[in-house]
């Protein structure tokens, strides 16, 4: 029943965006998307041109006039800020995620849970707090009252989640925090350890058509495609989580 309601909500939103049935798009659009969407977006639509990076970096580029048609962020805060500045149309939430700990396959720090990241001598790599995954990481540490103890072991802070993942896979630190969906992209290279559910932040992604896009119709079509039943199924196949029923198109959720 939930799936049916969600599908109906998605279809309703799609109609609201377009105001009409959607013909095939005339040309590929340029999508600026969070690094954590690197694998799934081309799987949803391989025809578009993608630029993947930290959401804050992409937002700065859009503010500086970069030629993007769609912006997809790993949080709702940044798109809402751009919307308030008139740089994008009203953002829409489209999926969720969680964070996990990754350690090198050999697990040199003998990490078995998040509390082990406080042990003396353990080295931790995280994203910096200006990107959503870094902000979410800080939220987890605060939620568990572990900020000072784990930050004391942080040896590097990266500009995007994929850099954290790569460094851990290469053994350049004992542990890192990344999205669960990113951890899945390097099977066999890292070991995944849970972040407790009670400490997880609400990781909600949002996307929006860029206000100055010359390809408004095609950009809106891409948004509809992501929100479609097929788009949502593809996101879930890559490990992303569905939105709870009732919050589709609700951008008021903040992480």
């Amino acid at each position: 029943m939930r799936a049916v309601v969600l599908a109906v909500a998605l279809l309703a939103f799609g109609s609201a965006v377009s105001g009409a049935a959607t013909p095939a798009r005339p040309a590929p659009v340029t999508v600026f998307a969070a690094a954590s969407l690197t694998d799934v977006f081309p799987a949803i639509d391989p025809r578009e041109t993608y630029s993947f990076a930290g959401s804050n970096t992409l937002a700065t580029q859009i503010a500086n006039g970069a030629p993007a048609d769609v912006f997809a962020s790993a949080n709702t805060t940044i798109p809402n800020q751009l919307y308030a500045q008139g740089l994008v149309e009203k953002p829409v939430a489209f999926t969720r995620n969680t964070l996990v700990i990754v350690v090198p396959k050999s697990n040199p720090g003998s990490i078995s849970d998040i509390y082990d990241l406080t042990k003396p001598g353990v080295t931790v790599d995280i994203a910096n707090s200006s990107v959503p995954v870094g902000s979410y990481t800080q939220t987890i540490l605060k939620n568990m009252n572990l900020t000072s103890r784990i930050m004391a072991n942080v040896v590097s802070q990266e500009d995007d989640v994929r850099t954290v993942l790569t460094k851990i896979a290469l053994g350049q630190a004992d542990a890192g925090l990344v999205y669960a969906t990113d951890a899945r992209t390097v099977p066999g290279q890292v070991k995944v350890i849970k972040v407790p559910a009670w400490a997880q932040p609400k990781v909600t992604y949002a996307l929006a058509v860029v206000a100055k896009s010359p390809n408004q119709a095609a950009a809106q079509a891409f948004v509809r495609e992501v929100l479609s039943k097929a788009g949502q199924a593809k996101l879930q196949a890559f490990g992303f989580l569905p939105l709870p029923v009732g919050i589709v198109a609700d951008t008021s959720l903040q992480h």
Binding site: N143, N145, P196, A199
Partner: peptide
């Protein structure tokens, strides 16, 4: 409340 106390609260909600 301190972060310590709020952490206990989150745990107890779980």
């Amino acid at each position: 409340l301190t972060d310590n106390d709020l952490a206990f609260a989150r745990l107890l909600v779980g």
